[in-house]
């Protein structure tokens, strides 16, 4: 292991080389030897610590052996015990501390000087939420055909927007269908809330604008994204599905009397009234 000052330190010293080996006479005890400049450089010191902390080990500095407790004081902390030189002769306001950080696998020995924390307060910041980053990623990576367009009433608000689908084939060709998207802060754990903003005649969309699309509810997974939802919505206009109806009458018409269904679709899109329901004129102007 090498012990070196943090890279940004200006007055860099040469690194220390630290080797840990077993005391072959006392196998429960380890000897740590610290050398300067290279693996066979000048020896700074060594210390021996046994597994039994009732015999607290020794620290040998320049040939003088002391019980560790004579030279270092320790303070117990979660994850790390801080050893501090009892002799604070490294400068009045900058005592050097040695930490033995024992989390995250192998030990990491690092030097901290006490000036830390100075600008810690300045560093604290509001953090972009995971939902927000995910929406930014989803939106900027949308890969939509020319038949679909997003619109943001408030461009600063990425969580609420509309999607206009203008199918270029199929029975809904010629219409422009507008869906509202509302994304909550628990996205992508929760799916986006999607509603049709117009009253339309479609087996899978009811008159309140609720949409029956599996990935919007029971089959939603966090790996899906806004692009998958949008493609799914467009597919509903190419292939309406009479088996999972939300507008039951439209679904029955579609499976029993396709001609009449097609005629109803055409006339509903022009904003006509079918069986007492006033549909929205969705024709592209």
């Amino acid at each position: 292991m090498l012990l070196a000052p943090p890279p940004e330190t200006t007055d860099c010293q040469k690194p220390y080389y630290i080797a840990v080996s077993l005391n072959c006479f006392t196998p429960t005890s380890h000897i740590t030897i610290i050398r300067k400049n290279s693996w066979d450089g000048e020896m700074v010191g060594d210390f021996e610590i046994g597994a039994n902390s009732r015999n607290p080990g020794t620290l040998c500095l320049r040939g003088n052996e002391y019980p560790i407790s004579e030279l270092l004081t320790s303070e117990f902390k979660v994850f790390r015990t801080t050893w501090e030189w009892k002799v604070k002769s490294f400068g009045p306001d900058k005592p050097i501390m040695i930490f033995w950080d024992d989390y995250g696998g192998g030990g990491v020995l690092s030097i901290w000087s006490m000036k830390k924390n100075e600008d810690a307060a300045a560093k604290k910041k509001p953090k972009t939420s995971a939902a927000q980053i995910r929406v930014q990623k989803d939106l900027t990576e949308l890969d939509l055909p020319s038949t679909m367009q997003t619109h943001f009433p408030d461009p600063a608000d990425l969580l609420n927007f509309t999607l206009t689908i203008t199918p270029d084939e199929g029975m809904y060709k010629g219409g422009a269908f507008v869906f509202s998207f509302a994304i909550n802060t628990n996205y992508p754990h929760d799916p986006p809330k999607v509603k049709c903003t117009q009253t339309i005649y479609h087996p899978n969309v009811d008159l309140e604008g609720n949409v029956c699309l599996n990935i919007l509810r029971e089959d939603w997974k966090p790996v899906l994204n806004l692009n998958s939802v949008m493609v799914g919505l467009q597919y509903l206009f190419l292939e309406p599905n009479a088996d999972d109806p939300l507008n039951k009458e439209a679904a029955i018409e579609m499976s029993k009397n396709r001609e009449q269904f097609l005629a109803n679709v055409k006339s509903s899109m022009r904003g006509h009234n079918i069986k007492g329901v006033q549909y929205a004129n969705v024709l592209v102007r």
Binding site: P126, T128, Q136, L139, L142, L144, H151, L158
Partner: peptide, 22 residues
């Protein structure tokens, strides 16, 4: 790259409307 701060969007590459707005 698309960039944002915790409170605003700095520059988004897409969709076109947001690209234009930023």
């Amino acid at each position: 790259p698309s960039l944002s701060t915790p409170t605003t969007q700095l520059y988004l590459q897409a969709p076109p409307q947001l690209e234009e707005a930023t």
